[in-house]
Design a protein around this nucleic acid. Sequence first.
DNA 1: ACCAAGCATCGTCAGCTAGA
DNA 2: TCTAGCTGACGATGCTTGGT
Length: 329
Amino acid sequence: MWWHQHNLCFRHPIEEDYSGDLEEKVSVAGSGTGRGSPAVTLVQLPSGQTVHVQGVIQTPQPSVIQSPQIQTVQVATIAETDESADSEGVIDSHKRREILSRRPSYRKILNELSSDVPGVPKIEEEKSEEEGTPPNIATMAVPTSIYQTSTGQYIAIAQGGTIQISNPGSDGVQGLQALTMTNSGAPPPGATIVQYAAQSADGTQQFFVPGSQVVVQDEETELAPSHMAAATGDMPTYQIRAPTTALPQGVVMAASPGSLHSPQQLAEEATRKRELRLMKNREAAKECRRRKKEYVKCLESRVAVLEVQNKKLIEELETLKDICSPKTD
DNA sequence: ACCAAGCATCGTCAGCTAGA
DNA sequence: TCTAGCTGACGATGCTTGGT
């Protein structure tokens, strides 16, 4: 379905947040054609030359270029899927689903492509291209408790005392922050000092943990003992305070797994696990879509390059024909 | 201004796969 | 065998665009 749409329209992917991910040899820009109109792509060559090209997939124009084998395989795969999608009425959805689900991951395809074809960027195993961003959700430690604040943030508290904050509105790349609990000595009643290792605290956030309310403090705030700051360098400090009144709206409380007794607690544990699974899957889906876009972008770049090459070779062929067989009239 | 169609994005589910 | 991750499919939602 999706490939069908892509091949038909040859849309340029949305210029979204990931622009600049790829080191493209050419820059491709979709012209401002309306819906359903023939797709014309603007190709900027490294030399600065600008060429208008049409989508190659649906173009019946003969090509003199023998594509590299790996690319042929990929295109053939897409074309097959198109056909299967077109014959939707013939095969049942389950079979179609089977066919579609056997497609290798975009990372794999693109990496295979890039290993065989120079100039095709790789999708990194870890998102190293996004420097300065916190680790991906997939690398997070398995938490023992997870909570959601009224603002939609997720707080995960791991066995080792690490508090992870996931911001669902941050497109999955910058939403994870880590806190380390340092329950040293004898804290004041109802208070626990934590060290905050995140990069993007705004100093005004509030979040909640079981039985305690965490107040995020600015680094300048004279809240933590001085020895804490001295021991951890520039880390700002935070304090967990006892809850004042009832829980704020939207906070999901759960007991730790070690203290499960009643069916209600078991249900809460199940809910907590489900929330964690959904959160991970949400992030995975975002990442998958991002890779998909990157993959499509890469393929379109290759199409543009090959079309330009194709055009040049055809022109060259015509020139050589003219030279070899001069007109006799 | 209103409406409908098309499109993009997101969250979730389900199934597959690779690795432990 | 189990589990975590990946990804297609599906439905919901919001935005854009063209027609009236």
